[in-house]
Amino acid sequence: MTARVATGVATADGTGAVRVLRCGSDAVLVEAEDAEQAQRLHAALRDAPPAGTGELVPAARTVLVRYDPSATDWQRLRAAVTALPLHEAPPASAAETVLVPVRYDGPDLAEVARLTGLTERQVVERHTAGHYRVAFCGFAPGFAYLTGLDPRLRVPRRAEPRTRVPAGAVAVADEYTGVYPRTSPGGWQLLGTTDLPLWDASADPPTRLGPGTAVRFVEAGPGGEA
């Protein structure tokens, strides 16, 4: 049995190739060239799921595709996935954008300024200037990894993660920014705080920041108003 299946099928727009890797007896991991292609792949799979497929789990460069082994198999899925035409990146319309008011009072704001060589004000300006999109969720329920961060704001995670980061903390790490939806441990650099409730286990869906959602951060006054 071959362990890994590498396919070199060009995508419809010729921008690159995806690889289909087996992931146990009822899932495949589809690996894209980059984060942007992974998001388009997730959208394409969501809109036109191959027969027999179930849950999709998008991540940084991949989409995990669960399937019903009584309805299909990984070879058929490999063929279906590599033939899938990828969408153009969907334009974010203003109506779909979640606006997150932020008080930029985070304990790591000064450290991020130091690491990036910017002033604290410049960090805030660059963070509020960005157009972000939820690439995927993970780490904790409703924790959304937002892409679109200004490359100048890329900083490493803290060497020592905090044991307790409060709900609503707005943070950056590596190529991502995000909001801690609930109190949890965390290693990202904290820029500020939002009072916007993003997670509600009694709501359907429980998070406002599902994959594909467009997000902007706006600076809020001390009282929290945008």
Binding site: C23, G24, A27, L29, A35, V57, P58, A59, A60, R61, T62, V63, L64, R66, F136, G138, Y145
Partner: peptide, 9 residues
């Protein structure tokens, strides 16, 4: 980069 995990991994 973070990728999807399954039970049994």
């Amino acid at each position: 980069p973070s990728e999807g995990m399954v039970g049994g991994a």
